[in-house]
Design a protein around this nucleic acid. Structure first.
Lengths: 359, 359
DNA sequence: CAACCGCGTGATAGCGCTGTCAATATCGCT
DNA sequence: AGCGATATTGACAGCGCTATCACGCGGTTG
C-alpha cells in the first residue's frame, strides 16, 4: 500500500539543501527571497542548485502556500486586432514579473465566460482581467468566489466589480459624429458588424448625436450580426447606399469596415471625402497609410492592457491603487477622409476624458 | 509547530465524500472519470458536490499525480495577425478539452525563448507548441528536460525536435515569384520588414527563383529590421523605386506591406498591375477586398494551429500520431494585382506540398 | 544583570489530492 | 455449489513545498 518510493534522479529542495549543507526550509526561503538568507549560505545554495539543475515545482508551491501567481485574462476574441494590442500591453507589463498569464477566449459569449471563470477558479488565480461590463450575475458570483483583485477593461460603467479601466464608447462615437456634423455632413450613416456590447454603445452614441442634431433617420443604420471584415465593410456600405442614396458620410464601428468602405468607394468611383466622408474606430495603423488617409477614433489599447496589469499587480501585492477606475479617454484623429471645405466650423481636435469636458 | 488547522468553510474532496457517504478516493475517481463509479454513488456525489460548491484544487491534483494538463505555447509576436489565426486554431482545438494553454511571447528573441521555456519547465507541462526551427541548443535541451510531446509550427525543416507542422517558406515564395515571371514580369522587387527567420527563407525563395530565371539583381531587394506595417510598406516601396525605377512587380513579404505598396501606388498614380504588379504573403482577408484585388500566397494558419493542438493531444494521451511531420502546403491566389495580358503563359494556379511536385 | 528584541535558522506538520495495492462484491461458467 | 474473473471501493502513504512556531545568539535596554 501507499505509493512507490521516490525515484532516484529527482532533484527536490531537499537534494539542494543536502548538497549545500543547510535545511530545506532555508533553500525554500532563498528561492522566494534571497535577502532573508545570510550571504554565506546564499552562495552555497545558489551553486548547489545550479549544479543539480534544480527546477522549483510550482504545483507543490501553490499547494503549500495556498496561492498562485496566475493572472486570468478573459477576452472575447483572438481575431479582433483590438485585443491583440490590449494583450500586448498586458504581456509586456507582466514580463519579468513572477506572474504568469492564463488567457481564455469567450467568443463574445457570456455563457462561455461563465464556464471559463469556473475553470479559472480551480487554479485559485491571484488576479483577474475581464472584458467589458456585461458579466452575468452568475459570472459575478464566481468572480466574488475567486476572492482576488479584478480589473474590467475596455469600457467604463456605473457598477465596477472591483477596478476598471477603459473609456466611454458612447462618448467616443458621439465625438466622431459631432466631428462629421461640424464638417457639414447631414446624412451620416452608421455601419456595424458583430454588434457586441461595445459596438452597441457606439451605436447609442451615434443615435444621441444624430437625434440631438435633429438628423436621426433609422434608414441610415445598417448592421449585421456576423464578424467584421473588410469585405463586410464593402457590402454593408452597398446596403446602406441602397437604403440612403443621399448619404454624405459613414461612421464605421471599426477600422476594418472603414477600409472596406474605402475600397467600395474606389470601386464605385465615389469621391472620398467629397461625396462621402468616412470615419472609422480604433485608429489602426493602416488608417494613416490609406489613400485618402482615414479619420478614426484613437483609443489607447496598449496602455489599457499595460495599466490593467499594473493595477492588478499593485492590488495583489497589497499596494494601494490610487485610481480604481481609470478613464483613458479617446481622440478623434481627423484625416483626409472626413476633412471638407464646405464646413464653416474650425477643425479643432475633439478628445474626451471623464474629467473635464464631456468629450 | 506544524501549521494552523484547517479552516472551517473550506470544501475539499473529503467534505464532498462525507456528505455523499463515500470515501474521498471515490469522489476523486468520480471527477476524473465518472464511468468508474457506480450509478448510485455517481448521483449522490454529484449532488453533494453541487450542494457544497466544490471546486477541485488543480495544484493538489498536479502535485499528487505528478502531471498537469498545461500546454505551453510560444509565439514570437502578439501583434502579427498571422499568429492570431494560429492561436485561434490552437484555442479552438483545446476548447472543451481538459487542457489549458499557457501562452508566452518570445518577441522574436531566442534568448527570451530560452527564458520562457525555463519558466514553462516549472509547471511540468503536458505538451509544448513552439514556433519555427531556430531554437538554440540550450532551448532544445530545456525542451528535452520537459520530457513531453512537442510540436514545432510555422515551417518545415530537416531536424524536428519531435513533431512538426507547417510549410516551406522557400517554396512558397518561389511559387509566388514564378507566378510573376509567368505573367511576364522581369524586374521583380522584394520588400520585407522585421526579417525573422521565415521572412529570411522567403527571401531565399525569391533569390532562387530570380537566379534560376537569370534575372537576379541585388538592387531589387529592400528590407528593414523594423516591425512591419502598412506605412512601412509604402516607404520601403519608395526606397525600392529609387533603387530600381524600372521595376515591374513587387513581392511583399507580408500582406500589410502589400497594402502599403498599393496605397503608395495610388498616391503616385502608378497603375496596378499595368505598371507594377503586387503580390503579398499570407492572404489576409483584406487582400480580396482591395481595389484592385491583391494577389497573395495563402497559408492555412488556422488549420496549422488546430492540427498542432490535436497532434499534441494525441501524443499526450498515448494515441499514435500518424503524421509526425505535416506539410500544409500553400496556394498562390492570383488576383487582379498580378494578372497581366502581356503574358503568354496560361495562368494555372500554383500550389505546393512536400509530396508531389516541387511546388 | 535580567529582560527583551530581532535576526537567521531549523523542526514539524500539513496543503488537497491521487497512485498503489488490498479487499470486497458481483458475475459467468463448469 | 465452487471457482476464477471482473467491477467497485477503500486504506494508506506520500507528491514537493511552505506556514508556523521554537530556538540560539548577539546586542540593547532599564
Amino acid at each position: 500500500m501507499g505509493r512507490k518510493r521516490i525515484e532516484p534522479g529527482k532533484v527536490r529542495l531537499t537534494e539542494v539543501a543536502a548538497l549545500a549543507g543547510v535545511s530545506p526550509i532555508t533553500v525554500s526561503r532563498f528561492f522566494r527571497n534571497p535577502a532573508t538568507v545570510s550571504a554565506g549560505r546564499r552562495t552555497r545554495i545558489e551553486s548547489a542548485a545550479k549544479e543539480l539543475g534544480y527546477v522549483p515545482n510550482l504545483a507543490a508551491r501553490a499547494l503549500a502556500s495556498q496561492r498562485t501567481e496566475v493572472i486570468g485574462v478573459l477576452i472575447p476574441s483572438l481575431t479582433n486586432n483590438v485585443f491583440s494590442d490590449v494583450l500586448r500591453g498586458i504581456y509586456d507589463a507582466f514580463e519579468g514579473s513572477r506572474y504568469s498569464i492564463q488567457l481564455a477566449n469567450t467568443r463574445y459569449s457570456v455563457l462561455q465566460e461563465e464556464r471559463l471563470l469556473r475553470l479559472f477558479l480551480m487554479q485559485k488565480p491571484a488576479g483577474l482581467i475581464v472584458t467589458g461590463l456585461d458579466q452575468t450575475a452568475e459570472s459575478r458570483s464566481i468572480i466574488q468566489a475567486a476572492d482576488c483583485p479584478v480589473v474590467q477593461i475596455m469600457e467604463l460603467g456605473a457598477d465596477p466589480i472591483d477596478m476598471m479601466i477603459g473609456f466611454s464608447h458612447v462618448d467616443a462615437c458621439f465625438a466622431a459624429i459631432s466631428h462629421l456634423l461640424a464638417q457639414g455632413c447631414r446624412r451620416i450613416g452608421f455601419i456595424g458588424a458583430r454588434m457586441d456590447p461595445r459596438v452597441q454603445r457606439r451605436l447609442q452614441g451615434y443615435q444621441n448625436a444624430m437625434k440631438e442634431a435633429g438628423l436621426f433617420d433609422p434608414r441610415l443604420i445598417v448592421t449585421a450580426p456576423v464578424p467584421t471584415s473588410t469585405t463586410m465593410g464593402g457590402s454593408l456600405f452597398s446596403d446602406l447606399l441602397m437604403k440612403a442614396p443621399d448619404l454624405d458620410a459613414v461612421f464605421c464601428a471599426n477600422d476594418d469596415l472603414a477600409l472596406g468602405v474605402l475600397f467600395e468607394c474606389q470601386r464605385r468611383h465615389i469621391a472620398v471625402p467629397e461625396q462621402v466622408a468616412i470615419v472609422g474606430f480604433n485608429d489602426m495603423e493602416f488608417m494613416a497609410a490609406a489613400v485618402p488617409t482615414l479619420t478614426s477614433v484613437r483609443t489607447n489599447r496598449y496602455e489599457m492592457g499595460r495599466r490593467a496589469a499594473t493595477m492588478i499587480m499593485d492590488a495583489v501585492e497589497g499596494r494601494p491603487v490610487a485610481e480604481r477606475v481609470v478613464d483613458l479617454g479617446f481622440e478623434v484623429i481627423e484625416r483626409q477622409s472626413s476633412t471638407l471645405q464646405r464646413a464653416a466650423a474650425s477643425p479643432q481636435p475633439a478628445s474626451g476624458r471623464a474629467s473635464g469636458t464631456k468629450w
